[in-house]
Design a binder for these strands. Structure first.
Lengths: 117, 117
DNA sequence: TCAGTATATTCGAATAATCGAGTATACGAA
DNA sequence: TTCGTATACTCGATTATTCGAATATACTGA
């Protein structure tokens, strides 16, 4: 049983292990949004959004509701928001002492990946 | 800054996105352990353990301390334990209502990948 | 120095994740 | 039915993760 629990947790973590998917979950924090609203709000490709939403669905992180020809997504459990909040605090507490963070962020720069706003 | 925060979170999640690494973090819950103790306790290959520990180190999830011949690992921040606890509660609350969980768990057993929607 | 123990790293193969482009499906309105 | 919109899925290429095996490094004690 413990093993199943660990697999379950790792699936949740895997589901959240991408910046875009975190952005999606955070965007849903205050309530459901249609896939289209998410795409617009996050400025991502439609196909990409759909793929990430499929991942979130498969890990049971979000649930979807169909209304007419749109699909509304919402977070399945508030616990996940709690988790993100804990990590936000963790991030800032680390920031004050950790210069390694700079390394981590710089690692993103040199390669063709451009981001970093 | 929001972007960096999301990348940070996703790195943490990625670091925890493997059952073995979750087992390691849980084993460290009550205090530091040497790499050897972890290997024995979790019954995993030495090289594999070392690789997973390297991941956890690179994501700043654990810190290591060298003492003579051995290396002791501990969790960098209690926040991560909190996160695991939240997910444990989440798991059990889902269990009572979610039959999909069984599918998820069954998927882990035999080799053939079933694709269900 | 050498031998033994503890841990880390490298290698190569297998698997999985990711992306954009293209295509398919579902729905509402005409 | 057909059209237009919203969303999902498939494909192929690229990159990342994972594993065990082998090797390397670091430390201790003789």
């Amino acid at each position: 049983m413990t093993d199943a629990l660990r697999r379950f947790k790792s699936e949740i973590f895997q589901g959240l292990a991408h910046p875009t998917r975190i952005a999606i979950v955070e965007a849903l924090r205050d309530g459901e949004l249609s896939a289209g609203s998410l795409i617009e709000k996050l400025d991502i490709e439609q196909a990409n959004a759909s793929q990430h939403l499929a991942v979130l669905r498969s890990k049971q992180i979000v649930v979807s509701r169909k209304a007419g020809n749109q699909v509304f997504y919402s977070i399945r459990d508030q616990a996940l928001i709690e988790v993100l909040d804990i990590l936000r605090r963790y991030f800032y507490s680390q920031l004050s002492t950790s210069v390694d963070m700079m390394k981590e962020m710089a690692r993103q720069g040199p390669k063709p990946r451009i981001r970093m706003r």
